[in-house]
Design a protein around this nucleic acid. Structure first.
Lengths: 200, 200
DNA sequence: ACGAGATGGTACATTGATGTTCCACTTTGG
DNA sequence: CCAAAGTGGAACATCAATGTACCATCTCGT
């Protein structure tokens, strides 16, 4: 039953449930400690180290697969946010919720050192950044978002707050259910009260 | 001239200018790539690898020294921000400026994996977090800051935005001179315009 | 000029992660 | 029930980073 693996994404046989297990566990482990050994990854996946190598010959291959997976998920999240529809602020809120729901997968991209200056990754990142900047720009044109901050900075702030939300959830500082709402409120409205009384 | 090194901070002899060079270079290199080899660090510091080992016998010792240095700098930054004086919003703004000025040193603390669950580090981090939370709480009590967001989350957001500002400066997305102002504006006021018109 | 201290380089031993090979065992599909 | 596929473990070989030892050189202060 020579199954040509590698290209198609369809969850074919029962055998590549193993692949999913590896991808998921590896993302989680490496997002939390990028220096974890492949033995750690294998153990977290509930698989022998040999089996891990059978699916991904070397660490670089594994990391690349994780990165592709993560980017794919990120693009799906962006797509699901329907950034072109409705008020930009609502769209941005949807985006934050989706991105925070990515959890591991987004954080992995930020923390894996070997992805730092990978051309493939840089290209993919540039693509998603462009989309987000487009949304910001739309909000600025419509007058919803301030124009005093560059769109590129706001896009960076989005990533930072998503990351911060993950850390806060991870450390138990903030309940998982609240993180996205807090991040969105912070980014959109800031932390000052509307009237800014601050009476002495 | 038996100089008891290790405890006093005074820039004693001309020989421990080397120590400074190592600390600074190592912080920069490791903040950008936590997996950099000691050879990389030595080269960046302009010293031989042997000399590096003479000052810091092993990697763990070096990392610990960097962490202490970074925490010390962070505490100085917090002190310089005089968080108890004046409106909380101004104090928070000062804090952001100071923390972003820390550059490398703050980011190193976030990115070095081996510091992740170090008890010493956790304790020091808890201390600074407590101070920041105190400031936030003061702002909330006075009515300057919203009380709809937990102080702990806002403190986390501060760290995230400082980190984001560093990344943005590092990648050239934002001019160094503007980063702190942008971060402060984002955190305090958010990105929505005051009226929130959003006319179609 | 001289000696102590500091430095850089070479060379070497050690170590832990990595990647590979081989084999016995289990599961699965027909 | 049987063959094929999948799996785990043990046993390697390799390699890069690390840490150490030694020595030649340099630079001070006196």
């Amino acid at each position: 039953m020579k199954v040509r693996e590698g290209i198609d994404t369809t969850p074919r046989g029962p055998a590549d449930r193993t692949r999913r297990a590896i991808i998921n566990a590896a993302t989680g482990v490496l997002a939390r400690d990028s220096t974890a050994s492949l033995g750690d990854v294998a153990r977290a996946a509930g698989v022998g180290r040999t089996t891990l190598h059978r699916y991904y010959p070397d660490r670089a291959t594994l990391v690349r697969a994780l990165a592709e997976e993560a980017f794919h998920a990120t693009e799906l999240a962006i797509g699901a946010s329907t950034l072109d529809e409705g008020p930009a602020s609502d769209a941005l809120r949807r985006l934050l919720y989706e991105m925070i729901a990515l959890g591991d997968r987004f954080v992995f991209l930020l923390r894996e050192p070997s992805l730092a200056d990978d051309p493939q990754v840089d290209a993919a990142e540039a693509r998603t950044t462009a989309v987000i900047c487009g949304l910001i720009a739309r909000g600025q044109s419509s007058g919803e978002f301030t124009s005093e901050l560059p769109a590129a900075w706001i896009a960076e702030a989005v990533g930072s707050l998503v990351y911060g939300a993950w850390v806060a959830m991870e450390s138990g500082t903030v309940p998982r259910a609240d993180a996205a709402r807090f991040a969105a409120a912070t980014l959109l409205g800031g932390i000052l009260t509307s009237d800014g009384s601050g009476a002495t």
